[in-house]
Design a protein around this nucleic acid. Structure first.
Lengths: 113, 113
DNA sequence: ATGACAGGTAGGAAATCTCCTACCTATAGT
DNA sequence: ACTATAGGTAGGAGATTTCCTACCTGTCAT
């Protein structure tokens, strides 16, 4: 492990490792801020289990909560996803080259048909 | 969980959850294909532990191996990272808005100084 | 005040992850 | 053939994750 250790980055990547948590982020993105109850309706697990997922997202800085009456409105905090993008971008040219190569190959097969 | 379940995506995100594995991908990107020994030199863990990380990366399709004599050359397979990018991109406008807002605020404070 | 509701924490079981040591297999060099 | 090297698998310990049930806290409605 190199000396440049980024704990915030670790938390974000770890949070994204769960399909449940990725889906929560998508829901908040597409449907806007919502109380826990409505979010949880999309999943079959027990409430405390879902609370745990929200805690992981909160600690990664990916969601924020606001108390409204007896509800808690969760909203997306997308800024930490910027770090993921930053990590990803130096790889981009590698997969583009590969996908371009694949496309060329398919075109070639097309020509030979 | 929605019916659209992507097991390949799960494997990729899970593989990226470890800082060790992210560093391996970076090394393969920056230094090109290398045998296990040279890769492992960057980490302090025992060899079998490192082999395990390579297995996770292989099963996610993020690296490929080629036998050369008694060595195994590992190389980056960046295409699955495209899926991560695809997942990420609908969030991009959200963090850009936030970062732009933050920048404006800082400019404003600058003006008032 | 009292009952109902939203959503959290506590504690624990089971599964998974991450690391280890010991050992196996395949190739290379003598 | 024999020894050394590269790198894997086997099996297991300990930590972490993910889920559960039971319970607590704060807010709203009557």
């Amino acid at each position: 492990m190199p000396p440049t250790h980024a704990p915030a980055e670790d938390l974000v990547f770890a949070a994204l490792a769960s399909p449940v948590r990725r889906e929560v982020l998508r829901l908040l993105r597409d449907e806007g801020p919502q109380p826990v109850q409505r979010l949880a309706g999309n999943f079959t697990m027990a409430r405390p289990s879902f609370s745990e997922h929200l805690r992981v997202l909160r600690e990664a800085g990916l969601v924020a909560e606001r108390k409204v009456g007896r509800q808690r409105l969760y909203r997306l905090e997308a800024v930490p996803l910027n770090e993921v993008q930053q990590w990803l971008s130096p790889f981009e040219r590698f997969w583009r080259e590969r996908l371009a190569g694949l496309r060329d190959l398919l075109d070639q097969m097309d020509d030979e048909r």
